[in-house]
Nucleic acid binder design. Sequence first.
DNA 1: ACGTTTTACTTAATCGTTTCAGAAAGAGTA
DNA 2: TACTCTTTCTGAAACGATTAAGTAAAACGT
Lengths: 366, 366
Amino acid sequence: MGVKSDGREARRRATLKEVASELSVSPATVSNAYNRPDQLSAELRERVFETARRMGYTGPDPAARSLRRRRAGAVGVLYTDRLSYAFADPVSVMFLEGIATATEGAGLGMLLIPGGALRERDPEAIGNAVVDGFVIYCMAENDPLATAALDRQLPTVLVDQPEIGGIPSVGIDDEGAARAAAAHLIELGHRHLGVVSFELALNAPGGIADRRRQSEATYRPSRSRLKGYASAVEDADRSWDEVPVYECTENAPSQGRIAAEYLLSREPRPTALLCLSDQLAVGAYEAAREMGLSVPEDLSVVGFDDIPAAARMDPPLTTVYQPHVEKGVRAGELLISQLRGEESSVSELLPARLVVRGSTAPPSKS
Amino acid sequence: MGVKSDGREARRRATLKEVASELSVSPATVSNAYNRPDQLSAELRERVFETARRMGYTGPDPAARSLRRRRAGAVGVLYTDRLSYAFADPVSVMFLEGIATATEGAGLGMLLIPGGALRERDPEAIGNAVVDGFVIYCMAENDPLATAALDRQLPTVLVDQPEIGGIPSVGIDDEGAARAAAAHLIELGHRHLGVVSFELALNAPGGIADRRRQSEATYRPSRSRLKGYASAVEDADRSWDEVPVYECTENAPSQGRIAAEYLLSREPRPTALLCLSDQLAVGAYEAAREMGLSVPEDLSVVGFDDIPAAARMDPPLTTVYQPHVEKGVRAGELLISQLRGEESSVSELLPARLVVRGSTAPPSKS
DNA sequence: ACGTTTTACTTAATCGTTTCAGAAAGAGTA
DNA sequence: TACTCTTTCTGAAACGATTAAGTAAAACGT
């Protein structure tokens, strides 16, 4: 209360050593005042703090401390897209929430590392990150950022990615879940399907993705989900090649709408749309409404993710549930247990399941 | 491609100096290989990298680098609640999105610092944060975390808080906006209002908050909004003391519902509810439905924040718009300009305005 | 052939802590 | 008194880099 100096001095911040010499004690003692109160008398400790305050010493420098202690007290989180997109997508927000829950419990900070945009300087950002480990969330396998993080050789957890060299990972059975979704439509009697996909690889061109592009997809969830759809179709003795897959440039309702508009204006018109995310399904609803088609009478729509909004859509969206928050929690826990030196289980598959709601029905006989 | 060693060696990571001596060059040269390619021959640089790879050197240690360079390449973000809550609330997510946009553009990481839960160890987390500055988001003024951050004396930006000692801040005119909201209801003819408030101070007890507690509120937005409501009421020559203010323990729909149920079962029953956030308004809708009251015929509801979901509610929610994302962007920009050494403008008020939608109407004559 | 730039490195001084292994002095014990 | 503990503090070596200033040799211009 009532700081005397006006702070205008702008002189270099005092250091621990200076505080020590001001008090004519050893630096070790000052350090102990902050880190091990039991190592010095309460009286001296108080004097240390007071002198520190007077000299404008704000406590041990975190960088120096991290260097010396060899730990950072934070984990790095890598996200495919630009960070700002991550917050716009409910799915990644829930995932981050999960990580936060875990790291918070361990007193660790979460360092979100800028992705996307300027591909150039990115690896540098990774190299500069003062962290004890990484969570890599849904990066394309060959993403330079992911590579840079892996190169740091820190404890790491992969999410929604195939294991790489024994690095623990968490994910869901995308393929199985997608198969269930497609099988559900086929069972209802749909013969003309369409797929609204998000990016299959970096810099998606947008538009119909042929089989080759599908199998070359670098994003594992995309690839697996398409594979799941395909196998359900083929299990029903139908050809996957007849099912158009539209690749959006971005995972957002606006893109889903464009995709759906395109697919619905093809002949034969699909009676059902499989969307790789609920965000895209929202766009599909919009397109349907725009074209005067009603869901589910004229068009069935299936999403993926089961974001909270899905159940509140009109009609409620049939989709694939997956535990996003839990996924983050597990990723965090796996990383933390590695930090503790426990070599942990290598791979974890969380449950996912089809949730049938009001957006799917048998096709009308027209 | 084809790493030979199986990584099991677990021997101490090589250092820059070791790489240097392996190559019989000076450490400076190895450092330059990473930081200033133009300072050595391309050929030697290549050899440095190759040797580094062979020796398992993964590049300059970020902590050491931060220490020497005296910058961290990241900004710290402090949030009132537990981090995991931040992600559950659309308002803070949008705000974080804004910060991300700004920091990302500057190539800075965002370090989210664990708040809430274990009040004990928190200040330590702050002291350990390797960051160049802080954004303090809506902390109570006396929050120990905020204090700890301020104590670091780094460039800082305050959000939704009154300025403290010339520290730049960004916010909105909460009081004015709240006044407009209340005035709107009064103009419509409502005479019995109720207020659903979120926490006024740390560890909210829940329940009716008397005038004293209202004015002692440590969260500035809460205090200002209540003040705004009060002044509109008093401008209409009515007594603010007659308006019950229910303080929720948490800013979540479930709590808003409890509050609204309580308020609506009092006599005289309020014909309109002023909610300090849209999240709480969602709860108010639920309570109304539960009690067989329809909005806006039997009950008018006004929110605060204008989250995207507000416009999609049924009926669409009358609320106060404020630019959450923009707020984050400006906070980020203000911080970044401080980091650049530009002593920036001291305080910034972003626009907010009442958005009248379908949830407000004149009271029925009953 | 001589002075000047350039290129390619090196030297050595930090950056600000933490922590291990004592040491001096007082307290307790036999 | 001689001894072992405690308590309280000190010395000094890391931790792993960056960078300003300097040097020796090569390249250049005339």
